[in-house]
């Protein structure tokens, strides 16, 4: 892989530096996009991870807090009955159910906020990222099946304590929606609706996945 002058090609150097961890954020994000989109680059990264893996022995084991597994499971697997009992989405999201919806980890601005919408027993996972600088929310189905014929996944934005607002349909391509602000406490949720979305403007189908925007 090396050229006669003993230098790595630029792309391999980027893969190596990504694994080393020294890059500034913008270049790390570039590398992460390449890992997603370019199997050759992803393989170089995997090779470098293996080369440097023996260094991992120097990381000490430190027991995490005793309740951490519970917190992770509460986030990944919200209690099912509570979500199913009510038909209307806001009802489904109030009270106890709200507390167990996925929390969100976030990088402070100007880095985009990212959230993963998940739900109990749901293969579906939806990735959302909000770029406050551009005022743009990007949403894409990250895992799980498509909605199926005659149906759509409808995305709702629910400001804390307010009624849900439909902001789009999540189909196969990335959905970009202008959103002025996404304050902590806002909920993003997906329901299964007839093709084209809820005819009434109020969620009619089951709540599948959701995430509450955490404090930055």
């Amino acid at each position: 892989m090396s050229d006669p002058t003993g230098h790595m090609p630029e792309r391999e150097a980027l893969a190596a530096e990504y694994v080393l961890g020294t890059l500034p954020l913008e270049e790390r994000l570039t590398a992460e996009a390449l890992i997603e989109g370019d199997p050759g680059f992803a393989a170089m990264v995997a090779d470098w991870q293996n080369r440097l893996a023996p260094l991992n022995d120097a990381y000490a084991e430190v027991p995490p807090p005793a309740d951490m597994l519970d917190r992770i499971e509460a986030r990944l697997f919200p209690a099912p009955e509570r979500l199913r009992r009510t038909g209307w989405i806001w009802g489904a999201l109030t009270g106890a159910a709200l507390a167990v919806l996925a929390l969100v980890t976030l990088l402070p601005p100007p880095v985009p906020l990212t959230a993963t919408l998940t739900g109990e027993g749901q293969a579906l996972a939806v990735a959302a990222s909000f770029d406050a600088g551009k005022g743009e929310l990007t949403v894409v189905r990250a895992a799980g099946p498509a909605a199926g014929p005659g149906r759509d996944y409808e995305l709702w934005l629910i400001p804390a304590g307010e009624a849900p607002v439909s902001i789009g349909l999540v189909r196969d391509s990335e959905l970009k929606i202008p959103v002025a602000d996404l304050p902590a406490g806002t909920t993003l949720a997906i329901t299964l609706e007839p093709e084209g979305g809820s005819p009434t403007g109020i969620a009619t189908g089951p709540l599948l996945v959701a995430a509450v925007i955490g404090g930055a």
Binding site: V19, G21, L23, P24, L25, R28, E32, A43, A46, Q49, N50, A53, N56, Y59, L107, P108, V111
Partner: peptide, 22 residues
């Protein structure tokens, strides 16, 4: 492509470093 623990540690390092850089 590699051992399980190597994969897990890579996820943890990448996430921690992204947070640090942010």
């Amino acid at each position: 492509r590699g051992r399980g623990m190597t994969w897990l540690i890579a996820i943890a390092r990448n996430h921690a470093i992204d947070r640090l850089r942010a």
